[in-house]
Amino acid sequence: MWGDWHQLWQIVSVPDNVPIVALLFLVPFYTWYGFREAFKHDRLIAQLETDPAMAKTHHRKPYPFKTGWERELHVWPYLMRIEFLAAVILTVLLMVWSITLNAPLEEPANPNLTMNPSKAPWYFLGLQEMLVYFDPWIAGVVMPTLIIIGLMAIPYIDANPLGNGYYTYKQRKFSIWTFLIGFLALWCVMIVIGTFIRGPGWMWFWPTQTWDHNRLDFAVNRNLHEIFGIENRWVAMGFGATVVGLFFVVSGYLMHRLCMVTEFSRKIYQRMTLLQIITLHTLLILMLSLPAKMAARLLFRIKYVLVTPWFNI
C-alpha cells in the first residue's frame, strides 16, 4: 500500500532513528558550508594567478587583513571563550534532547523471537546494506578492513601538495570527488537506505509504503556463468575468475585515464612513486567494485560472478 504516512512516521519517529534524521540535515549542510569556503578561496587563487604582482604582496587569505595587524591571537580569552560557548550550547542541546526523547528499551532479549527486520545499529547499516550485494565475508569483514586501510592510506597516496590547510575545490578536484563519493554516496546514502527503505526481510519499501510482513520477493538471481550457459564447474570458475580479472584490468585502465585527464592531474601523477600508483589504483578499483556489483545485481539480476567451492564473489 502506498501513501501510508503513518508507516513513514513510525520509522522516522523511532528514537534511535533521530540521529539519522539529524545526519540528513547536518551532512548536506556541512558539505555546503565547506564548499562555500572552498569557492571563496578558489576565487582568490584565480585572482592571484592572473596577477603576479598582487600574489607577491597579498596575505593570501580571503579574510580581511591589514599590515600592522597581529597575525596571532591569544588563546585566552579568544579561543577559550568559543570553546566554553560550544560546551554550553552542546550541553543544552543534549539536555533538551534527553528530556524530550527517551532512549529505547524493547522486551528482554529473547533468542527464540527473531526481530524482523533485524537491524544493526544505524552507524553500521552501510555494511548491512552491502550484505545484499556481497557475501558476509566481504561485506562484514573485508570491506570494513579496506575502509580503515584506505582511509589511513589517504595521506600517503595523495601526492598533491596544494590545498594544505585551506578549503579549496579547484586545486584538489580528484581527491575531493573520490572522498565525497565514498563518504556521501557509499556510506551515508547506504545508511539512509538501511534505515528508511529496508523493511521486513530486508526488502525494499519506498517511503510511505506499508511494511508488509507477508510480502515475498520472487527475484530470480542467477550466477553469471549460468547466463552464459556454462555448466562445468571448473570452466565456470575459470570464466568467473577471468571476468573478475577483466574488471580489475578495465577499471584500472579507466582510473588511469581519469588520472590523466587534466594537465594538472598529469603533473601530480608524475610526482607519484610506483608504490603510490599501485596502492591508489588498487584501492580505487576495490571501491568501485561496490557500485559495480550493485549495478550487476540491480540491472542484470546477477548473484555471483565467481563461484568456487570455498567462496563466492
Binding site: E106, E107, P108, S118, A120, W137
Partner: peptide, 21 residues
C-alpha cells in the same frame, strides 16, 4: 540493556565474524 534491540543488533553484527576469511 540486554533487550531485543541490542541482542539482535549484536547477533547480526557478530554473525559476520563467522564469515571472517
Amino acid at each position: 540493556p540486554d533487550d531485543q534491540l541490542g541482542f539482535w543488533a549484536v547477533t547480526v553484527g557478530t554473525n559476520m565474524a563467522r564469515a571472517t576469511p
